[in-house]
C-alpha cells in the first residue's frame, strides 16, 4: 500500500450535483481497488494560472488516499475518459510527507474529538495554516 495525493480539476461550469457525482465516482473507484480515502477537500472554483483546453477556471478537488500501486492505472484511465475532468495529477508521497500527513490526520481526529460537529470542509488557507503548525511541531517530535 502506498500513499498518494491526487488533484483533479473539473469543469467550473459544472453544477454542484455534477461535482458530487464526479467526486463519488472517483472515491468509489478508489475504494473498489482496495484503496482508502484518507482526506478529501474541495478547494472550489479557482482561476487557473494558464489556460487549459480553453478553460480559464476550474473546480479543484483534492484527495489523499492509500492504495495498492495497481489502483493507479485504472484511476488514470478513468480520468482520461471522464468528461468533467480536464486535468489531473497523482503523486506518490514520500516518507517525510507521509509522516506529516499522519500528524495532520491525528490533529484532525483530536480536533473532532474535542468538538463533536466540525463538519465544514477546510479551505486551502486553513490547510496551509495547519501545515505551518506541523512544520514547527514535527522536528521537535523527531528529536524526542
Amino acid at each position: 500500500m502506498n500513499y498518494y495525493e491526487n488533484i483533479v480539476i473539473l469543469d467550473a461550469a459544472l453544477e454542484d450535483t455534477g461535482i458530487d457525482a464526479a467526486e463519488k465516482r472517483i472515491t468509489d473507484l478508489i475504494e473498489k481497488m482496495q484503496g482508502e480515502v484518507l482526506k478529501h477537500e474541495r478547494w472550489g472554483r479557482r482561476k487557473l494560472s494558464y489556460e487549459i483546453n480553453k478553460h480559464e477556471k476550474g473546480y479543484y478537488l483534492f484527495f489523499v488516499f492509500k492504495a495498492p500501486p495497481e489502483a493507479i492505472k485504472p484511476l488514470e484511465e478513468l480520468y482520461k475518459v471522464f468528461d468533467p475532468v480536464f486535468k489531473f495529477m497523482i503523486i506518490k508521497l514520500r516518507k517525510k510527507e507521509i509522516i506529516a500527513l499522519q500528524n495532520s490526520l491525528q490533529a484532525i481526529e483530536a480536533k473532532a474529538a474535542e468538538q463533536p460537529a466540525p463538519d465544514a470542509v477546510p479551505d486551502v488557507a486553513k490547510d496551509v495554516a495547519a501545515d505551518a503548525v506541523e512544520g514547527v511541531a514535527a522536528p521537535s517530535g523527531a528529536d524526542a
Partner: peptide, 13 residues
C-alpha cells in the same frame, strides 16, 4: 533555518 520537513507544492505563497 526553519527545518521544514518537506517543500509543499500546494503552498504557492
Amino acid at each position: 533555518a526553519e527545518k521544514t520537513p518537506f517543500i509543499d507544492y500546494k503552498d504557492t505563497r
